[in-house]
Write a protein that binds this DNA or RNA. Structure first.
Length: 403
DNA sequence: TCTGGGGTCCTAGGACCC
DNA sequence: TCTGGGGTCCTAGGACCC
């Protein structure tokens, strides 16, 4: 690890809303809220992103959409267009890669760059940050905020401090002075629960924490406390790691109203399994495990998991496992708010996997894979709601599918 | 005013093995 | 009849992030 690193954190400002305003000039200057359907104030979701005009009314991300509606009914309310944002995100990352090979995505609209090795050729880290902002604006018509610091943690905070359109550089000898006055909630990994715990121990600011003894934090918060202590002192040695493969892949949905209707529950579950299976097949991977998520009308959430052996990317296999997991939740008689399915233990699909399955006595696998390919094509062409596999819903295990 | 959907990581506790 | 300690793997829950 070089002793004097230059790390950038680049964070797009109001990303989803800004893409919508750029794609639809008539939305410019207006409050734009991207998120769930507000349904006249009765919608169940939350705000995913909103423009700065909307923030003026007190709207912010994660706000229940019904509340946003009451604050500003005249705003433009839009459903997220995930594929579009992914496309624009790719263009943003294209610009970032001009300045370093070490680009680590943190989400669709945020990344770390290690520009330590780029400084000689491309100028100071701060100058690089300025160029990145200028190119994002000129080429994409979007605004980013940038933080420059000796490590990831400080760079991330720095990018946030002067949002929107900010550029904040923190030199190594100014890190402690920069951090100390900030509230503990700025620490990475301190959410509502940990913040409450720290406050009950008399700590309000990062300075309050950095002035404690390391052993005291270890005693009260364990290993996590020690890590917080290090962050509070501006110590963060984590390297910038270019993108790796995702470790899990899931889909979940909240019902428009809580339901105990078995047919509706099974149809929804099948649709989730189809979405997960389809994404697995597209990514060329198989899942070695499945987790079902279940939330009841009281918002109590539970999960059940099992291994998938052999690993699979087929909707039928995933759905069968999901039904077994659903039984383990004891769902009957309860009203369901949310169902989710997540594939884990992902691994590359082996070549000739179908032939291998045949050895295990599963001759239908090749055929089912071909059916899956057709379904995927139809769904791509006509949308994910276009194709329902009626055959999988019938019988409910009393009747085997015939080939 | 109820609280989305996509993820990651950590921990506690039980099973199992030596 | 009660008795250990370590290691590993697994599941469920939960905190956190965007």
């Amino acid at each position: 690890m070089p002793p004097n690193r230059s790390i950038l954190h680049v964070d797009m400002d109001a990303f989803f809303a800004s893409v919508e305003q750029r794609d639809h000039p008539e939305y410019q200057g207006r409050p734009v809220v991207v998120g769930a359907d507000p349904k006249g104030g009765r919608g169940r979701g939350v705000v995913a992103a909103c423009s700065y005009e909307a923030r003026f009314f007190g709207i912010h991300s994660a706000l229940p959409i019904g509340r946003a509606w009451r604050l500003c009914p005249q705003a433009v309310y839009l459903r997220p267009r995930g594929a579009r944002y992914a496309e624009v995100s790719g263009e943003v990352f294209g610009i970032l890669h001009r300045y370093s090979d070490l680009v680590e995505p943190l989400s669709i609209d945020e990344a770390f760059l290690d520009v330590t090795g780029s400084r000689r050729l491309l100028g100071s880290a701060e100058a690089i940050g300025r160029k990145i902002k200028a190119e994002i604006r000129a080429e994409l018509g979007l605004v980013a905020s940038v933080g420059v610091a000796p490590n990831k943690f400080v760079a991330k905070i720095a990018s946030d401090i002067e949002k929107p359109d900010g550029l904040v550089a923190v030199a190594a000898d100014r890190v402690q002075g920069f951090l100390d006055p900030l509230p503990i909630t700025r620490l990475w990994g301190v959410g509502p629960k940990t913040a409450e715990r720290l406050r009950s121990l008399g700590m309000q600011t990062i300075g309050d924490l950095s002035h404690r003894r390391r052993e005291d934090l270890r005693a009260s918060l364990g290993e996590a406390g020690e890590e917080l202590w290090l962050l509070a002192r501006g110590v963060d040695e984590r390297p910038v790691v270019p993108e790796g493969e995702a470790k899990s892949l899931g889909a979940e949905t909240t019902f428009a109203e809580d339901t105990s209707d078995p047919g509706r529950i099974r149809r929804t579950l099948l649709n989730l399994c189809e979405r997960v299976g389809s994404r697995l097949r597209r990514s060329g991977r198989v899942a070695g495990g499945l987790t079902l998520k279940f939330r009841d009308e009281d918002f109590a959430t539970s999960t059940r998991a099992l291994p998938l052996s052999p690993p699979t990317d087929l909707t039928e296999d995933i759905y069968r496992a999901a039904l077994a997991l659903l039984e383990k939740t004891g769902w009957r008689g309860k009203r369901v708010r949310l169902l989710g399915v997540a594939a884990g233990r992902l691994q590359p699909r082996a070549e000739g996997a179908g032939a291998q399955l045949a050895l295990f006595g599963d001759e239908g696998a090749g055929k089912r894979r071909r059916v899956a390919a057709v379904v995927d094509t139809l769904r791509e062409r006509f949308g994910s709601e276009a194709v329902t596999r009626a055959a999988l819903l019938e019988g409910e295990g009393e009747e085997e599918e015939k080939g």
